[in-house]
Nucleic acid binder design. Sequence first.
DNA 1: GTCTATACCAAGATAGAC
DNA 2: GTCTATCTTGGTATAGAC
Lengths: 206, 206
Amino acid sequence: MRAEDRRELILAAATRVFGDYGYVGATTSQVAKAAGVSQPYVVRMFGTKEKLFVEVLGRALDRLMDVFRAELAQESDVPLARRFGLAYVGLVSEPGLLLSLMHGFVLGSDPVVGEAARCGFMDVYAFLRDEAGFDPEEVQGFLAGGMMVNTMVGLRMTDDYDTNPAVRELLAAAFPEKLALLREVAQRQREREAAERETSGREARA
Amino acid sequence: MRAEDRRELILAAATRVFGDYGYVGATTSQVAKAAGVSQPYVVRMFGTKEKLFVEVLGRALDRLMDVFRAELAQESDVPLARRFGLAYVGLVSEPGLLLSLMHGFVLGSDPVVGEAARCGFMDVYAFLRDEAGFDPEEVQGFLAGGMMVNTMVGLRMTDDYDTNPAVRELLAAAFPEKLALLREVAQRQREREAAERETSGREARA
DNA sequence: GTCTATACCAAGATAGAC
DNA sequence: GTCTATCTTGGTATAGAC
């Protein structure tokens, strides 16, 4: 396989793993295993875990902007903020993408990762204001909703959807049209994590 | 000193350190140093780092609820949601409190920490709905604003307040009355982190 | 371009003295 | 109740073969 294809493969795997365990919590071995390559190869290809994470962040932000730009180019009677919101929630189906971003957003104290996350966040702000024409209050409200989506997905809230009426209520209040999607994605993520835990458990015993 | 007083001291230090570096990123040695005790003592007192973090989370949530309850008991013409919002932002001046919460909120995948964070989040939801009388949409909007505060503080956005007009604009749109507080808190946090980095740098060289 | 083997270090936890 | 010393594990990164 060409190095560039491997690179894409590893970046996709890294996005999932960083989304599940965070920048510090994720290991290069987990990424390697998820991508089907050896751990040193991951390091070799990206230099350091830090550089790999910064690249994951950058690509997630690019993807986010692409989705917004595609929406912007469409004709529609539905208000733009609403369409952006739905498009954003739709991104939960791309494994680890929003969660990796969220993990970046809590690392402001890190000199390298924090700087990258801050700049990325402000790029989104600038896009919404300058290209999409939102005013600052609209942008603020929109971003707040986005952070709420990230938090609820990050908390795996949908795990309790069937047993906890309050969870059902909160999710319904936030994204009525996207409930089914959110639940499905949470289900898949849970399965992935359970499989991973089982595997590492077996290894530990062996 | 009595063990219980030490305990409080360590919990306060842990809240700061976990807020700065996250659950995985923070070390028990950092907590110990911040509290002025030895690393094994921290572990001895709380059993494991995990238990320590869960306790930090629980106390942060208690503190949050206390602040809301105090607000609820007051007579005022200002709408309750507004007062709650201001009270919430006011908590940024308690070092690490909101940031520790935020770090908990992205760890939903962890069997122990995730469960604690999820329950805590839903407790806040239940409080806002049942005791404060918000309807689900109000609660959702309120929590979204809260997550936005956490994110901006976590990103250390106020670092760029003076140099980046877009940052100024976004912060002003979000919390006009609390701008000065946010900047001051970010400043203090930056100083603490810089001091910490310098110290650990010196140690590494020695 | 990709692997195996391994060096190296840091972190959590334990033992046991005082 | 608190410390020093230390064990153990696991994770990043490097060396070098194929």
